[in-house]
């Protein structure tokens, strides 16, 4: 059932898309299209457009900042980067995620937990 799969995937995405976005920005800033394409390729957003409402909330929460760079053609492009709060939020998630994902994986794959 494709729709059941989609629903399951949508539920999974909800919890991890935010830390995944922060993790993509950990090492370098990215502009919108790059960020959208990478999240989409990883199956973490349903469509590239749904990145922008998410970015708006993370910016409002102070986890992500952006700067506008005027490209050579004169078209401004927004680059998104991690703030200190964003980095702290990502680290906090990573601490929770390691045991959580280990336990769930073990459970799903054969009950060795």
């Amino acid at each position: 059932m494709a729709t059941d799969d989609e629903q399951a995937l949508a539920n999974l995405r909800k919890g991890v898309v935010e830390p995944a976005l922060l993790a993509l920005l950990r090492d370098r800033e990215l502009y919108g299209v790059e960020l959208a394409q990478r999240l989409n390729a990883l199956g973490l957003i349903a469509g590239e457009g749904s990145l922008y409402p998410l970015l708006a909330r993370l910016r409002a929460a102070g986890l992500v900042a952006y700067r506008t760079e005027v490209a050579s053609r004169g078209r401004p492009r927004q680059y998104y980067s991690l703030t200190d709060d964003g980095r702290a939020s990502l680290d906090a998630f990573a601490r929770l995620w390691a045991p959580f994902s280990r336990n769930v994986t073990a459970l799903i794959e054969g009950g060795r937990a």
Partner: peptide
């Protein structure tokens, strides 16, 4: 096509607004 439908983007925006 890659963006998804305008309505799905708006749904996401409503959800993020509510979360915020």
């Amino acid at each position: 096509v890659q963006l998804g439908t305008p309505e799905s983007i708006a749904d996401e925006a409503a959800e993020q607004f509510e979360a915020r």
